[in-house]
Design a protein around this nucleic acid. Sequence first.
DNA 1: CTGAAAGCGCTAACAC
DNA 2: GTGTTAGCGCTTTCAG
Lengths: 350, 350
Amino acid sequence: MARRRQAVTIRHVAADAGVSLQTVSRVINKEPNVRPEMMARVQDSIARLGYVPSIAAQRMAGSRSYLIVALNDRERTIAGWRDRQGTDWVDQMLLGGMLTCAEHGYRMIVELVDTHSDHIERELLAAIAAIQPDGVILTPPHSENPLITRLLEEHRIAFARIGSRNAGPGFAVAMDEAGAARIATEHLIALGHRRIGFIAGPDEYELSGWRTDGWRTTMVDAGLPTDGLLAAGDFGFASGRAAAAALLGSAVPPTAIIACSDQMTLATLELARERGLDVPGDLSILCFDDTPIVRFVHPPLTAIVQPIAEVTARAVEQVIGDQSGDVAEPIIVPATLAVRASTGAPRSPA
Amino acid sequence: MARRRQAVTIRHVAADAGVSLQTVSRVINKEPNVRPEMMARVQDSIARLGYVPSIAAQRMAGSRSYLIVALNDRERTIAGWRDRQGTDWVDQMLLGGMLTCAEHGYRMIVELVDTHSDHIERELLAAIAAIQPDGVILTPPHSENPLITRLLEEHRIAFARIGSRNAGPGFAVAMDEAGAARIATEHLIALGHRRIGFIAGPDEYELSGWRTDGWRTTMVDAGLPTDGLLAAGDFGFASGRAAAAALLGSAVPPTAIIACSDQMTLATLELARERGLDVPGDLSILCFDDTPIVRFVHPPLTAIVQPIAEVTARAVEQVIGDQSGDVAEPIIVPATLAVRASTGAPRSPA
DNA sequence: CTGAAAGCGCTAACAC
DNA sequence: GTGTTAGCGCTTTCAG
C-alpha cells in the first residue's frame, strides 16, 4: 500500500485562487458572507484542480462526516441473503437510501448488528465511534429497540425509525399500513366481493393491528360483514394454511382472501388449488407483500407494494435535514397496489 | 446536530493506562515491540473505557481508512433495483463483501458510477478523494474499463476486478465459467443426452467465449457432436427465443439445451411449451444463472449457481491483504449446479 | 467580508 | 521497548 496523501487539498485551491484557506472552506460549505467574485474564483479553482474535500478531514475538524449508517439486523439480513428467496428489502432500502444520500452529498454505510445480543450497545457504540456518522437509519426490528434508541438519543445522533409510528426520539417513518389494507379491501369490493377474508399477522407486530383495523374499517364502511372473516397467522406458511382452511371451511366461505405475508398467501393459494378452487374465479387472493416469488407464481398475485425505497428516502431526508428539537410527526408513506391475475370478480355474486 | 467529539479518545486510554499515546497506538495496531504486560494494561483500559479508534483520525494520520469501496455500475444497478426482478447480484456481493470486510476490521461502501459517462474519471476521483478507501472492488462492467483500472493504478490503490481473468493491474477474481459449462454439460451427458444445444451469450463478453469453450470441450471429450448445436444470443429474451427456435428447428433437434442467461432460458421454456414439448421429457433445459425467477418457474430450472458472494469475498481478501508488487494469478472460483426439475433423462435415447 | 491561529484524534518518524 | 514531536486536511474560534 502506498502512503497516500490527498492529491489536491484545500491548500492548493487557496494558493491557486489566491485566497486564504478559510475562504475556500467557506465556499465549500456554502457559507454566507463571501463576495460573489471571490466565490466564483474559488469555485473555478476547485473545478480546475478537481478538488474534493476529504470527509475524514472534515470530520476531524469537527464538521460533519457526511456518512449515514443504515442499521440492519445481522441475523435476519444474512439469512435473507443466504436463502436467496428474492426478497429485495435491502435492495429497496439501498435504492431509496443511497440515492437520497447522494443527492445531499452524503454516503450510506450498511452496518449489521445483532438485535438479540446483550452486547448490542457495545456493537453500536463501536460503529458510531469508528464511523462517526451524522445520522442513523434504524430498520425493523431495531426501530423499536429501546436500547438502541436511547443510546442514539444520548449521543445526540440524528436517527430515523423505519416502520415505526410511535412518537419518541428520532423520526418515525412508516408505510401506511391501514391505508394499504383499505386499498386492498376496496379493490376487492370494487370487483364485487362482499365476503372478504383477512389473514392477519401476529400481534407482536404493531403493524398487524393497523392492517387489521384498515380492513375492518373499510368493510364496515361499505356495510359488509366481518364476522368469521378474520383469522390470525404468524407470517409463516403453516399458519397461513391453517388460517385459510379455517376461513374456507366456514359455512359461508369468503370469495376473496387478503393475507398479510407472502408465505401465508402462497399457503392460501396452495390450499385453494388442492380444493379445486379456481383463482380468481372461485377465490380471489391478495398478498400484502410484493416479493418476486409472488409475481412468478401462477397466477401472479395481486399485491400491496411496500414503498421501502420511498420510506427510506424520507427517513434519510429527515435525518440529514434534522433541525433537531422539533418533535416531528411520524411520516406515513402510502402504499400502492399491483393488480395481477389472482383477483377478479367473484363467479357467483355473494 | 450536536457538535460531536469523540467520547473516549486515545488520550483517555493513555491516561488511564498510564502510558504514552504512542504505546496505545501500538497496541491498537498490533505492532510488535510492546511488552506483554504493557499490552495487557492498555487493552484492559481500552475494554473498560470502551474505546474504539476513529477511522477518520486514523486516516488523517496517514494510516488506513479501513474502508473498501465496491464500485458498481449506476445505471445497471439502479435498473435492477427498480425492476424488482429479484436478481440478487448486489445482495450476494454484499454478503461476501461486507462479511469479509468485517472479519478484517474493514467496512464496505457501495458506490455507483456511470460507466458510459465521459466524466467517469471525475466521478471516481471524487469518490476516492472523499472516502480515501484502502481498496476498491470493481464489478462488471467496470472490471474491464481501462479508464478505471488505469486511474486506480496511478493512484496506487489496491483493487480487484470481479469477473475478469486478464492479468494486469489489480487482482482478477472470476467464476470458473468454463468449468461451470463443463459441469452443466456433464450433468446432461450423465442423464443420457447426446445432442445438447448451447445458447451462448454475446461476444462482447469474454465470459461468453469461456462458457462456449467449456461446453464444446466437454462434448468433444465425450465424443459427442457439436455441429448445429450452438446458437448465439445477446442475453435477452427475444434473442433466446430465436436461438431456441433455430436449435429446435434443425433436422435432429437437441434433447437438452443450456442457455447462458435466465431470460434466454425462460424464452426457451416458453417456446418448448408452445410446441407441446414436455420439460424435461422431450427437452431438458438448463439455465446459466440461478436467479429467483428461475426457481419459481414451472418446472423449476436446473441452474448454474454463480458464486458471487465467494468471488467478492476473495476479492476483498486480496485487496486487504495486498502485499502489492507480486503480480498475482487470477483467482478462479468454482461454480456449482442446482439440480431441479427441468432436467432429466431424454425420453427417447438420441 | 476575510485572514490567522489553534486543534480535532491519530500515527510516522525520530529520539531516548 | 517506550516516549516525544510534528503534522495529516479541514473547520472552528477569534481578529482584523
